[in-house]
């Protein structure tokens, strides 16, 4: 599967860092479904080691049906997505929710965003 994407870190000590991912090299692919794990532990595809509010295995990003989905993995401090109608009231992620390119999401205290690769 020829699919690439970039995650931009939007807050915390790594704010401004761009992390490119390639479906052929990073994470797991299963029948067109690309899964990227996010967490503090070393074996995560997207590793957030500098945020103590991030759980060891915190959340997953999924590429499925030509769009992105965000899943919280029963994390201690929660996964949140940007609330378009009220910027200061983040929406907690329960189960799997769709997430748009450009929409902010928060893992622990770290804000992130999926960048469109054009």
């Amino acid at each position: 599967m020829d699919l690439t994407m970039t995650i931009i870190i939007m807050s915390g000590v790594e704010d401004g860092t761009q992390l490119p991912f390639d479906a052929n090299a990073d994470g797991a692919i299963n029948e067109g479904h690309w899964k990227i794990s996010i967490g503090r532990r070393e074996d995560n595809v997207l590793r957030l080691r500098n945020d103590t509010f991030v759980s060891r295995q915190h959340a997953y990003l999924h590429w499925r049906d030509s769009r992105w989905w965000l899943e919280d993995n029963s994390s201690t401090n929660g996964t949140f997505i940007e609330n378009k109608s009220d910027f200061f009231n983040d929406i907690p992620v329960k189960g799997i929710v769709p997430i748009e390119v450009g929409q902010l999401f928060r893992i622990g205290r770290t804000w992130l965003r999926i960048q469109s690769d054009g």
Binding site: G12, V13, E14, D15, G16, T17, R49, N50, T52
Partner: peptide, 10 residues
């Protein structure tokens, strides 16, 4: 988790 106060990349 680290020493000092580093600047972020941004």
């Amino acid at each position: 988790l680290w020493a000092g106060i580093p600047n972020t990349p941004r």
